[in-house]
């Protein structure tokens, strides 16, 4: 895992607006199983950051514990990262974000890390609307401990162990909408064409952005009877309205037919253009999003795409009314009121 890649770069590699190549966004070699869905998500994160020309060192990566939470080592090697304890990434992310509001926070978690041990922290970070991208690499099982069912495993779904899961599944996207998230999307690790723009849109959103990604576990949960397997996901994927992600620097040129699209402008000026289809619904309304997800659930479908967007919410810093300068840059001069004030305060206790 600590092996180092050759530093040689082909001179003709394509560069982004900052002059970085895609390689500048890579990390160490993955130690996950060959074919793991998580590695595809890692690649999608690299691609999204590269295409958006994000300065690699202005990103902070956070994760919990589990296979998914190892992956921040495999992307953005020039960014700081922290591996918290199991299920506690949301609180560590909250503190980190409070210390410096100017970085892009990318959290990576798994379904065990988020929907079981970290469920309490998850719903509360949603409530606080912390400005971050929260990616769940969702495979319905505990990989590192050899394949136990997780809380997102669908009722009746079987992993390699062969026993159908008898418990109800938690849908993290529905939970996030219910607890007030401003951006909720679901992707599939096998569909890069959809996942990269979903991640880019999430990065453009200010506030909490959940991207729940179905990410099959090839070793323990890729059986025909598993609803988190590659073939099941391909067969049962139902996309919401297809959409274009138009970054803030790009001019909107294509024509569109009135009533056939819905534009949502994100905080950074980029635009999500949703093309309406028979499946589409108003993603800006909570009830409409929840209804669409519930309808697909009843039909045994996996609804993917942008499920909910609300750009009107205040993030944690807005709510707490913190100063514009990152708190970690403040010095004695900003923070310490000095002895004269202390003498005055003491007077109140005489």
């Amino acid at each position: 895992m600590s092996s180092r890649r050759p530093v040689f770069r082909h001179p003709n590699l394509p560069k982004n607006d900052l002059g970085y190549t895609r390689r500048d966004y890579e990390g160490l070699d993955s130690t996950l199983c060959a074919g793991c869905g998580h590695d595809s998500i890692t690649n999608a994160i690299i691609q999204a950051c590269f295409e958006l020309s994000i300065e690699p060192h202005r990103v902070a990566k956070l994760s919990g514990i589990g296979c998914s939470s190892k992956s921040p080592a495999y992307f953005l090697g020039k960014s700081h990262g922290i591996n918290a304890v199991h299920g506690r990434m949301p609180s560590v992310a909250t503190g980190a974000n409070m210390a410096n509001k100017d970085l892009l926070y990318i959290g990576v978690s798994g379904d065990g890390d988020t929907a079981s041990i970290g469920m309490g922290q998850f719903v509360h970070i949603v409530r606080r609307n912390l400005n971050m991208v929260y990616i769940v690499m969702n495979n319905g099982c505990y990989g590192l401990t050899k394949g136990q069912d997780s809380a997102t495993a669908d009722k009746g779904s079987s992993s390699r162990k062969g026993r159908p899961n008898p418990f109800e599944a938690i849908d993290l996207c529905e939970t996030a909408v219910q607890t007030g998230a401003g951006f909720v999307a679901r992707g599939f690790s096998g569909d890069k064409e959809q996942l990269v723009p979903l991640l880019k849109a999430a990065m453009g959103h200010r506030g909490f952005a959940l991207v729940d990604v179905i990410s099959p576990c090839v070793t323990f949960n890729n059986t025909p009877a598993s609803t988190k397997s590659y073939h099941w996901a391909r067969d049962h994927m139902e996309a919401t309205a297809t959409f274009d992600f138009i970054p803030s620097r790009q001019e909107i040129t294509t024509d569109y037919v009135e009533g056939a699209t819905q534009n949502v402008t994100l905080h950074d000026g980029s635009v999500i253009r949703l093309h309406k289809t028979d499946n589409s619904f108003d993603v800006t309304q909570r009830w409409s999003s929840l209804e669409a997800m519930e309808q697909c659930r009843e039909k045994g479908q996996i609804l993917t795409g942008i499920l909910h967007v609300n750009e009107t919410l205040k993030d944690t810093h807005d709510i707490l009314e913190t100063t514009d300068k990152p708190l970690n840059t403040l010095t004695e001069k900003d923070l310490c009121p000095g002895n004269q004030v202390l003498t005055k305060i003491s007077e109140n206790y005489r």
């Binding site: 922290i82 609180s91 909250t94 309490g120 509360h124 970690n328």
Partner: peptide, 18 residues
């Protein structure tokens, strides 16, 4: 939401230089 989170918040902020 609980003391786990309270300590997580302090730790995350300290990691990030506050």
């Amino acid at each position: 939401e609980d003391e786990l989170s309270a300590m997580g918040i302090a730790l995350g902020a300290a990691w990030n230089g506050a």
